[in-house]
Structures are given as structure tokens and as C-alpha cells.
């Protein structure tokens, strides 16, 4: 039974990454925590990952505030192209 709970660092960090979005399952979280008992590297990865998640979120917020629009010139060019296509 315990063997099933044993995971590699690659698997542990995959779960950790998934957990940054709150989408790891309960079983995955148990496996991850068991892995931490013997692996300090992945524990460090997790701590750093939380820091990164925070800064990515800050970045996401400012990115999403930007609205992307086409310039009037772009629109005119597009209109001409569409018109010539229709003819």
C-alpha cells in the first residue's frame, strides 16, 4: 500500500505545480506531503513555487488590465483588404 504512495521528484513537483492552481486532488496532496518527509529539495521547490505563483498573479493582474485594440490604420487596411476580397 505504501509503495503506491511513493513518488519521484518529477511527479512530486508536477503535483506541486498543479497545486499552485488549487487543482491537485487529495490523494495527490497526501503523496506530495509523504514525499516531503524524505526530500528537502522538493520542499524547497514548493516554497519557491509559492513565491513565484504570487509574482505571476501580480503580473497576470496588470496584464489583464490591458485592453488590446487594433489601431484605426490597421482597421482601414483590413477594410480595404476585405473589400477587394468581396469583389
Amino acid at each position: 500500500m505504501f509503495k503506491k504512495l511513493k513518488i519521484t521528484c518529477d511527479e512530486a513537483t508536477t503535483i506541486c505545480d498543479k497545486n499552485q492552481y488549487g487543482e491537485a486532488t487529495l490523494l495527490e496532496k497526501i503523496k506530495l506531503n509523504i514525499h516531503f518527509i524524505r526530500c528537502k529539495i522538493c520542499f524547497k521547490y514548493t516554497k519557491q513555487n509559492m513565491t513565484l505563483t504570487k509574482i505571476y498573479k501580480g503580473h497576470a493582474k496588470s496584464c489583464k488590465e490591458l485592453k488590446h485594440c487594433l489601431s484605426d490604420t490597421d482597421k482601414e487596411v483590413l477594410k480595404e483588404k476585405l473589400n477587394s476580397f468581396k469583389v
Binding site: T13, T14, D17, K18, Q20, Q48, N49, L52
Partner: peptide, 9 residues
């Protein structure tokens, strides 16, 4: 996502 995040880290 995992590969992207480990590389980004």
C-alpha cells in the same frame, strides 16, 4: 505546465 514552470523557475 510542469515543464514550463520548472524551466521558468
Amino acid at each position: 505546465i510542469h515543464r514550463a514552470r520548472t524551466q521558468l523557475r
